[in-house]
């Protein structure tokens, strides 16, 4: 009784602590954006810079970037989670090692290489970039789904089978809910990876903040380069923050 009460107190203490920490990241992002705003405002922009940093150009690139990230992450999850679940089923468990090795290898290949190779084979554009991003971000989702399901205590599965659950009911009521925290962590990693790798999509003509950065490099205009990089950073931090919030909200209570 008293231990239970203690657990509750310590848990709510940890809760408030975490709650206060959730505001650190957005404050950093806001400070970053504010500094960027002041910095750009203080500059005397030449015509090239002004054209590259026009509001609609930058915001358009940002929007494209977000689209790339969201679409590729959704597809990554849509492919990675079912595949990961399938690879933990008894019949094909052995194939898991092979698929994991392949996913590992695909991530070991430099992302720019994957992008350029795919562009050479399938052409350029938004969807090609999405395919490359999905291939690249598949590993953490796949691996964490498999690990998350495998780490479920076998005694729980035995208890479930013993009370008459079918293997499907065991998956839906025991394995998947208990794997959620690990799976969410994998999805979060995939999201962050995608924000970074999507900057390379500019090389295959898929737009995004990478195009701002690369035009900064190509035109030798420092402010353009800085705006592109800083916005990418701010986006990555924001996405990480949102993913953290989602992770907390979706984590089943009691574990």
């Amino acid at each position: 009784m008293s231990t239970a009460a203690m657990t509750e107190t310590s848990r709510s203490a940890a809760g408030t602590e975490r709650k206060s920490r959730t505001w650190v990241l957005p404050s950093v992002v806001l400070a970053l954006l504010g500094t960027l705003w002041l910095y750009v405002g203080s500059l005397d922009l030449d015509s090239v810079e002004a054209r590259s940093l026009a509001g609609d150009v930058v915001l358009g690139a940002l929007w494209q970037h977000i689209q790339l990230v969201v679409v590729s992450t959704v597809l990554t999850v849509a492919v990675g989670v079912p595949l990961g679940v399938a690879l933990t089923r008894p019949g094909i468990r052995r194939a898991g090692a092979i698929v994991l090795a392949a996913a590992n290898a695909s991530q070991a290949v430099p992302s720019i290489g994957v992008l350029v190779l795919l562009a050479m084979i399938f052409g350029v554009g938004f969807w090609m970039a999405v395919v490359a991003l999905v291939l690249y971000a598949l590993l953490p989702v796949l691996r964490n789904t498999m690990v998350g399901i495998r780490q479920v205590d076998p005694a729980l599965i035995d208890a479930g089978r013993g009370m008459g659950m079918s293997t499907r009911e065991v998956l839906l009521t025991i394995e998947l809910p208990l794997a959620v925290p690990v799976m969410l962590a994998g999805i979060r990693v995939a999201l962050i990876l995608n924000v970074g790798v999507a900057t390379l999509a500019a090389f295959t003509n898929a737009g995004g903040l990478g195009s701002v950065i690369s035009s900064g490099i190509a035109l030798d205009r420092m402010p353009v380069l800085i705006v592109g990089s800083a916005l990418t950073m701010a986006l990555a931090l924001t996405v990480d923050w949102l993913a953290g919030l989602a992770e907390r909200a979706l984590r089943p209570r009691g574990i």
Binding site: D153, R161, G162, M163, G164, T173, I174, I255
Partner: peptide, 20 residues
């Protein structure tokens, strides 16, 4: 599965589902 629904089953590890 149907048979087991009609038989009580208790194990040493208890096996309560932590998220319920």
């Amino acid at each position: 599965d149907e048979l087991r629904r009609g038989i009580g089953y208790v194990i040493q590890q208890i096996g309560l589902l932590p998220h319920l």
